[in-house]
C-alpha cells in the first residue's frame, strides 16, 4: 500500500515529501500529549527515587 509519493519525475510540482500526509494535526496532538505525560511520569519516578534514598540515609549518620 503506497503511503505517499510514488514518483519524483516532476520535482517542480512536488512540495511535501513525508508519508501519510493529512495526519499532521493528529500527530501534533499525540506528541503534545506524550510530551506532557513524559514530564509527569519521569518527575514522579524521580521523586520516588530521591525519597527512597532519603529514607535509606535517614538511619545513617554522616561520617565525621
Amino acid at each position: 500500500m503506497p503511503t505517499g509519493l510514488q514518483s519524483f519525475n516532476n520535482p517542480a510540482e512536488i512540495t511535501l515529501l513525508h508519508p501519510f500526509q493529512g495526519t499532521e494535526i493528529a500527530l501534533s496532538i499525540i506528541v503534545f500529549i506524550l510530551w506532557v505525560a513524559w514530564h509527569v511520569v519521569t518527575a514522579r519516578a524521580e521523586n520516588e527515587q530521591w525519597d527512597e534514598l532519603d529514607n535509606r540515609y535517614a538511619g545513617e549518620s554522616p561520617a565525621a
Partner: peptide
C-alpha cells in the same frame, strides 16, 4: 508555523 503546517515538514518548496 503551527507544527502541522507545510513549512514545518520536509518540503521541496521550502
Amino acid at each position: 508555523f503551527y507544527p502541522w503546517s507545510p513549512a514545518m515538514a520536509p518540503n521541496l518548496a521550502d
